[in-house]
Design a protein around this nucleic acid. Structure first.
Lengths: 223, 223
DNA sequence: GTCAATCTTCTTGTATACAAGAATGAATTC
DNA sequence: GAATTCATTCTTGTATACAAGAAGATTGAC
């Protein structure tokens, strides 16, 4: 939490939210957070406002900040948009990638292969992130890179859930292989479609997961 | 500037920026703004941070806030992304629009027709905004609506420049007509393509404009 | 006993005071 | 005369104090 206190606080609290340390619906008390991190309320407030801008918390006037509990369909919508943006990035990458981009993309792809083979979902999760970042970078659209990165980050907690699903890692890696092929051979439309599906699937999986949990919840209620 | 001081300040300063009252590169002094609006530095700081989050200004550590002067190619990139997102909205709207959506869309379209006929570019500018909002709404994707609205807002100052171009209003209206047709007849792909082009053209026009201005600048230099 | 109203307390919103770093200008030295 | 360094000043970043509104508890009335 060195250089910039506000940034540090923001990351810290954001982390707490995505790791469910602060639960959805929970109220975030400024004074409490300030005491906890050994700073005054001022930087805490600023950090909270930033989180509010990102959409992780909601600040209601004079009633404090609460952790947002996004409705499942909202998360699904976010995956839909992500799919579209990633498709766009893939399409641009196919047309614009340089030699450096190719090297980076292949390197990230190899890393994914290793972690997928090792069935190491934590490492795969990280390498997968690098892979997608490499595609963003190859699009050579600064604004698109920013938008994709922001959304990617925001969906992080939900994506993480999914690698636990059986065989998802291997399937994901195979999809990556097709995507790499399309991009490096300059097939823009194909790259777009493949990437769009690659992401959209995650939204579907998320919905399945929610449906399952909801069913379980209903079962519990019945007893 | 009633209810929420920070919100009011944000809007006020944002307005100042998009109307070139504060010029790109200009430094925004907290104390000065506080004095000007008759409040303390605290809410001014918070407003500035929000503007920074939107991307209108840049806050450099201990060196204050300056109005961002986005490079033309960055604005072009923003139009590219906007084109993609609007295309997506159009595609969803074609598949999901309700009777209410149809009524709203046609109403907005008629308004555009009237202001285009009247060659009233200020009114057209506003009606055009309603038209696009109607499409967003018809997509029935809350997150997409948010994203589109945010980007639309951010591109507002650059869009405004373009209606001055000869015949742009009439051309724009004709494009709208085709878009409405595609959406209401449920042709998702067509709606996507038409909308994408409709927006992309604005990016192109912007580039043309920049090129012209740059050329003029160069001519001035020569003298 | 329950409901409503008022008062108290707690939390947020704003102002101000204080600290620390960056920029600018002046002075000294080469 | 120019450049570099040091000091002063100005601005941002943080803390704290104060004000205002909301939530909750207590008391009184029905």
């Amino acid at each position: 939490m060195a250089e910039n206190i506000v940034q540090g606080l923001r990351d810290e609290i954001e982390n707490g939210i995505v790791t469910n340390q602060y639960l959805p619906g929970e109220r975030l008390d400024e004074a409490q957070l300030a005491k906890r991190f050994g700073v005054s309320r001022t930087p805490v407030r600023e950090a909270l406002m930033q989180l509010s801008a990102i959409g992780l918390i909601e600040i209601r006037a004079r009633r404090g900040a609460v952790v947002i509990d996004p409705a499942p369909h909202r998360i699904y919508e976010m995956f839909e948009v992500m799919a579209e943006l990633e498709g766009m990035a893939g399409s641009l990458a196919a047309r614009r990638h340089t030699d450096t981009d190719r090297v980076e993309l292949l390197a990230a792809h190899s890393k994914c292969e290793r972690s997928a083979d090792a069935e190491d979902s934590d490492t795969y999760y990280y390498d997968n992130e690098l892979f997608h970042k490499a595609i963003y970078a190859a699009s050579h659209s600064g604004f698109l890179i920013e938008q994709c990165s922001a959304l990617h980050r925001r969906l992080r907690p939900y994506r993480r859930l999914q690698l636990r699903v059986r065989n998802r890692m291997k399937t994901s890696f195979n999809e990556h292989a097709a995507i790499v092929g399309a991009i490096l051979s300059g097939e823009a439309d194909s790259a777009r479609t493949l990437l769009r599906q690659h992401i959209a699937i995650q939204g579907d999986r998320f919905s399945d997961l929610v449906a399952t949990l909801a069913q379980r919840g209903a079962d519990q209620q019945e007893r």
